[in-house]
Design a protein around this nucleic acid. Sequence first.
RNA 1: GGAGAGAUGGCGGAGUGGCCGAUCGCGCCGCCUUGCUAAGGCGGUGUACCCGCAAGGGUACCGAGGGUUCGAAUCCCUCUCUCGCCGCCA
Length: 425
Amino acid sequence: MLDMKYIRANPELVKAGAAKKRIALDLDAILALDERVRAGITETDRLRAEQKNASKSIGAAAPADRPRLAEEQKAQKAQLKEKEEELAKLQAELHQLLLRVPNVPAAEVPEGRDDSENIEVKKWGTPRQFDFEPRDHIALGEAQDWIDVERGARIAGSRNYFLKGDLCLLEGAMMRYALELMVSRGFTPLSVPTLVRKDIMVGTGYFPGGEEQAYRCDERDDLCLVGTAEVPVTALHQDEILDLKDLPKRYVALSSCYRREAGTYGKDTRGLYRVHQFQKVEQVIVDVADAQRSIEHHHVIVSNAEDVLQALGLPYRIVNVCGGDLGAPQIQKFDIETWMPSRKGYGETHSASRFHEYQARRLNMRYRDADGVVRVCHTLNNTVAASVRMLIALLENHQNADGTVTLPACLRPYMGGRERIGKPL
RNA sequence: GGAGAGAUGGCGGAGUGGCCGAUCGCGCCGCCUUGCUAAGGCGGUGUACCCGCAAGGGUACCGAGGGUUCGAAUCCCUCUCUCGCCGCCA
């Protein structure tokens, strides 16, 4: 959420930002409503002050006079109540509108309508030239009895799966490697709730707007399944005023992630590219409101992810996500796409976002700066390693002609020291 | 799931209808006293919003939301959370 004061001071910037993101926004309606709200506040404050003074003088008056004076206050009270109700309604309306005002994208975000216009900013590694006919991860996984999508679907519907045997272990190995790498870099590991209250979904910017993508248990329990550990981790310090000396906060969390994938029928139906549930290690940074420091953190969290991919020996590219493909909350986003032979292309495995105070303001997460002034934090996050999508890349890129898969050195300690998995087919 | 106790400022802890945005203590900040240290004295010390060029003024907030009242931290209702007890489950 943007600060109303900022919007008032920079309406053209906000409008241009929404336009760059291709998000419809009637800012003038918001500005007009804001005027009415402020006038309402001034008015109710004045009436309340009168009311308070009158009450005080009743308390000070002779007891005999009090009933008469109290009687006279009743009309005032009714008027105040009416104004208050009117104001509360306007404020609620304004708040709802503000929740939908998109964050202003950075100047370095490219113009563009959709992901086809994202700009590649880096490429690492060379897609492997196979001297045999490579299998895709499903063919390989089923032949090795590593993947069972049929029973997954029977038990939980389409886009659900079982991982078995060494692939199950490999998933754990990759998660553990990613987690430990981040811990070695000073990130605090967290085990987090994956069911969160609806206001946390609002606080992190997923609601309103993303309701269709979330599994919801809120009818009975007001809880939603998170699509990423970003949600509980970013919200960890909700409603807190943090000490400057404790910033930045660096967290890493492994969690299950749940996505409804509404509106993707017929898209990526083969294999495990698009699934309803997966494991992910996520990194989150909370720091002071300093644009330059946010940019530095952004680079760091991207390079953390790059280090994982490089250690895994997976070719990837980084794209600077264009305005039209950017979500409402982000200032800027870099997606990392990993080479997947079966797609004959790069598939998104990481998403590094910079928010400035958009999330922190909604979460009411602040800190006291060196001058003692309370300010709203900045937040960022990025994937470290995402299961299934990166398992696809691992299996497909590192497969051998005989159907075995060579393990990257960094994962071997987590796989009993083995160099490869799978039986010759 | 059942019966109970509690929730006040950074912390501790008063406060049972008007003099309470809240005594006091600790902590913290500033100044002062005192060779140093220890100790002491004085003053200050929440968040948000509105009006104002500013100085300043105003409003709200005592877990959350409603209610009673001219007036609520204080009375009533609902909810949440915390703590310990019983039951159930792991």
